[in-house]
Design a protein around this nucleic acid. Structure first.
Lengths: 339, 339
DNA sequence: AGTTTCTACGAAAACGTTTTCGATTTTTTA
DNA sequence: TAAAAAATCGAAAACGTTTTCGTAGAAACT
């Protein structure tokens, strides 16, 4: 019922002009101390707060960051958002989140909506479908408008923008080497289809480690899973055929599924088969046995991405066209699933 | 480099007035078919999209929903957001997410920021600190401004707004009864401190079930945990002293922690001790043994909340002051942790 | 006393829309 | 052919700010 207070209403109530009110509230010396105090008192009393939309229109900046990710019910992405939100909030920004649901079309639509004035810049991780199609026109359009983008995790190298990633190749390689050092001879990897860049890179790192050590490797050492929903039987067959003593999984879910299957087959984890998973989330911490993981530092990635974006937003326009790719160090969190 | 296209620029380029351009693009009959087509062609060619901020200011509505929750790295909240986002998106709304981090001050600040024009309405779950203080002035302020709020999960009954909750009392009661029917005699509950309303209600439901059956109950049957971080030793002591054959936990984390401790003590789950947890998330699905849970239907709650809010936003102002509390049915998901 | 400098405020433009109203021209009708 | 009606467009207000500029009166100079 009490209408939102505006400068205009204050001006009417106090018999001054709108400009006077505005200046008084911003402590301009153009206004006498007397009227300044009077107006500020009135504003405080009735809890005046400037309208954000009007400010956005005036200033041509919204102080909002658009986030587009495939899913939110996913520990890694949730941690990234948490990291973004934290630094964004500290610097006076708010985050608008849109989910692509791994769909190209939704990604495009959401981006279009946000790009029309709602936000100052993007932080995003691409949908699987986008990666599959290799269609990035929506990114290019936004960038051409002069709106900055920071990509993380699922990035595309060719884009002229900042990126925050982990070194998937190196992480997979060193995790594999870790297993080899522990005496494992026949290691398998449970990965995703190749168009998901992280899946591909992790598989390559895995191969590299094996090659360096002249360890056993053939195409049967690699399982590529399309949809995570019904991965159980695929993993089961893979494990049965392979008879591995070490498993590297590109996410927690594959790892814990494998672990359960192995235990059902009466194989001891980690004595007979060791397991390492990418992503250090809830599952790994509470599975039985607990899983050794490669921590992706989602919070850090989010924080870095937000800092990068805000830095670019607040620098005097894009004089500096040199884009940066930050590589976040992973860390091996040793738990029970490795000896 | 190519400045964002506006009505004004189109008008200049085509030597007509701004109003003509606006009308032409909206297919007004006031404009001749000829000029209409010409302008629309031009707009399409250079990919004109109206500026959202300007529209928001003009229409006095932003088509954005503000979400304030304690945490996002939390499966339940993530599912709720997912549910909200889905229906919001369908109806042309976007979501702005702010995290309180269980802090009263952050909740207040974030709400203030969003309430000043950035959004049309709120969907929120209160922080622990807010519940502890019982200070709801920020909610009242927003409601007094005529901005609708829909609360979920952690709600406060007295607030004049719509709410979406699960019947925590009934759910805890029926889960307890389930355990009793399975022949369990001495059941304990691992809950949270009382100011978290859901913890309190669930404990009450638990007591009610025991009372009805004249089952064993004393104050040692209840463990109230303040912070989830170091709950392990507390749970360990609780289990040791209690010697239970059934456990009801108010969240997955407590349940899986209890399960692990029990197994370390060589107690068979579910044969010797059965376990039921609130929240049907990842942990329960992949723990060993898998956990029987009370599904909170986070997605449903989010979808219902969003529908309620949008409905109220789009009704001709708040003629209808009768607020509704939707109770979402829980479902018992039986898994291995109960016989 | 006349000129200049301050002081304190208001008018108006700008941000990008939509919409109401008025104005001009063309077409229709009597 | 004059009047009425329709067609087509532009001006301007409005949303709520901030900021530049102008201006009136008072104070301070010469």
């Amino acid at each position: 019922m009490p209408q939102k207070l505006t400068l205009k209403k204050i001006a009417q109530d106090m018999n001054v002009s709108i400009s006077t009110v505005s200046k008084a509230l911003r402590d301009s010396h153009e206004i006498s101390v007397e009227t300044r105090e009077k107006i500020k008192g009135y504003a405080k009393k009735f809890n005046y707060k400037p309208n954000n939309i009007a400010l956005s229109l005036k200033n041509q900046k919204t102080k909002k960051i658009g986030i587009i990710i495939p899913e939110i019910v996913h520990h890694f992405f949730a941690t990234v958002i948490s990291g973004i939100e934290k630094v964004a909030n500290e610097k006076g920004y708010q985050v608008i989140i849109c989910l692509s649901g791994e769909s190209f079309d939704k990604e495009v639509v959401n981006m279009d909506m946000l790009a029309n004035g709602s936000i100052d810049g993007f932080i995003m991780s691409l949908s699987k479908e986008t990666l599959e199609r290799q269609d990035f026109h929506h990114l290019r359009e936004v960038l051409n408008q002069g709106m900055p983008i920071v990509m993380f995790d699922r990035v595309v190298d060719a884009m002229p923008c900042d990126k925050v990633i982990i070194d998937d190749f190196a992480a997979a390689q060193s995790a594999t080497e870790f297993l080899l050092r522990k005496g494992k001879k026949k290691i398998g990897i449970i990965s995703t289809v190749d168009y998901v860049s992280v899946g591909k890179l992790r598989t390559q790192g895995f191969k590299e480690a094996l090659n360096k050590r002249n360890a056993h490797f053939d195409k049967n050492s690699v399982l590529k899973i399309e949809d995570a929903e019904n991965c159980t039987t695929k993993i089961e067959n893979f494990l049965k055929k392979g008879d591995f003593d070490g498993i590297l999984a590109v996410n927690e879910l594959f790892a814990v599924t494998a672990s359960k299957i192995l235990q059902k087959q009466n194989k001891q984890v980690p004595e007979e088969v060791a397991i390492i998973a990418f992503t250090d989330g809830m599952l790994s911490k509470y599975a039985s046995p607990t899983l050794t993981t490669i921590g992706q530092k989602g919070e850090d990635m989010g924080a870095l991405a937000a800092n990068k974006l805000i830095e670019r937003l607040e620098s005097k326009q894009d004089i500096d066209e040199s884009y940066e790719t930050v590589i976040v160090k992973t860390s091996l969190v040793e738990r029970e699933s490795t000896p």
